[in-house]
């Protein structure tokens, strides 16, 4: 207990304070807000914020549109119910993501020739490819927990199939949807490796941190980290409100055993 508490204080809490202190000071060690003013007045940083948000939103939407039917068919469809094929859809999680993105890049190069013509499309496409398993898993978990008798009751009471899905299945699977969205949205907002691999540029929030980092500009790097932290806090808060129960241990990205 004590070693772990010390570890958490030293390497989880303390780094946050260091970031905050760097974000609110300038190069001379004086307290100032100029880093924040710089962030919100600079075209490049604001542009990057919007660009990565757009990429993250599109990635999340496409993952949801592709993944929800998969999760539904696996959990509730007649064909695959007996032998769950879920493992086929989460298996790619275990393969190193940089290798998977490289594979997709080769395929895209074959079709497009030069990847530089469609950087936005390519980035979203590769991110959907990377994050889809992390969307399917929580959706599947939520849908298998959904009681069949609810759907049958709705049908007996005269709802048609579409109504059953829209009015019973969808609302009851909201915890899964929320958890899937948090698992995809945040990583896709900061995962600059994907963009970096398909197209050398610095338009993702994470890569801004990287560029300030390599320039030893820790003050501006800290500001961006803080902005990201705030976004993360907001999303966590909203998703907790929406689901109203403890997040499951698997509520992050790439990861369940």
């Amino acid at each position: 207990m004590i070693p772990y508490a010390v570890f958490l204080v030293l390497f989880v809490v303390l780094p946050l304070f260091v970031i905050i202190s760097y974000a609110f000071t300038n190069g001379n060690g004086e307290v100032s807000f100029e880093n924040f003013i710089h962030f919100f007045q600079n075209r490049k940083t604001i542009g990057t914020l919007l660009y990565s948000t757009a990429i993250a939103v599109l990635t999340t939407v496409f993952c949801l549109l592709l993944g929800y039917p998969v999760a539904y068919i696996l959990a509730k469809g007649e064909i695959f119910r007996e032998h769950s094929l879920l493992f086929l859809f989460v298996l790619p999680m275990w393969i190193n993501f940089t290798l998977r993105i490289t594979a997709m890049k080769e395929i895209l190069t074959f079709f497009e020739g030069n990847l530089a013509y469609h950087p936005f499309f390519n980035t979203v496409f590769c991110m959907v490819y990377d994050f889809l398993p992390f969307m399917i898993q929580p959706l599947y978990n939520a849908l298998t927990k959904l009681d069949d008798s609810m759907m049958e009751a709705a049908q007996d009471l005269g709802a048609n199939r579409l109504q059953v899905i829209l009015k019973v299945v969808l609302p009851l699977s909201i915890p899964g949807i929320v958890s899937g969205i948090t698992m995809v949205f945040l990583p896709s907002m900061t995962n600059y490796v994907v963009l970096d691999l398909v197209y050398n540029s610095t338009y993702i929030m994470g890569s801004l941190i990287g560029s300030y980092f390599s320039a030893y500009d820790w003050h501006n790097g800290s500001v961006i980290s803080l902005v990201l932290l705030l976004i993360i806090c907001m999303i966590t808060f909203i998703s907790n409100r929406l689901t109203r129960f403890e997040p499951e241990p698997e509520t992050k990205k790439r990861r369940t055993a």
Binding site: P187, Y192, S222
Partner: peptide
């Protein structure tokens, strides 16, 4: 819940 970039960056600075 934190982004890995932020975790890595903050630990490195610390």
């Amino acid at each position: 819940v934190n982004a890995d970039v932020v975790t890595g960056f903050s630990i490195c600075i610390l």
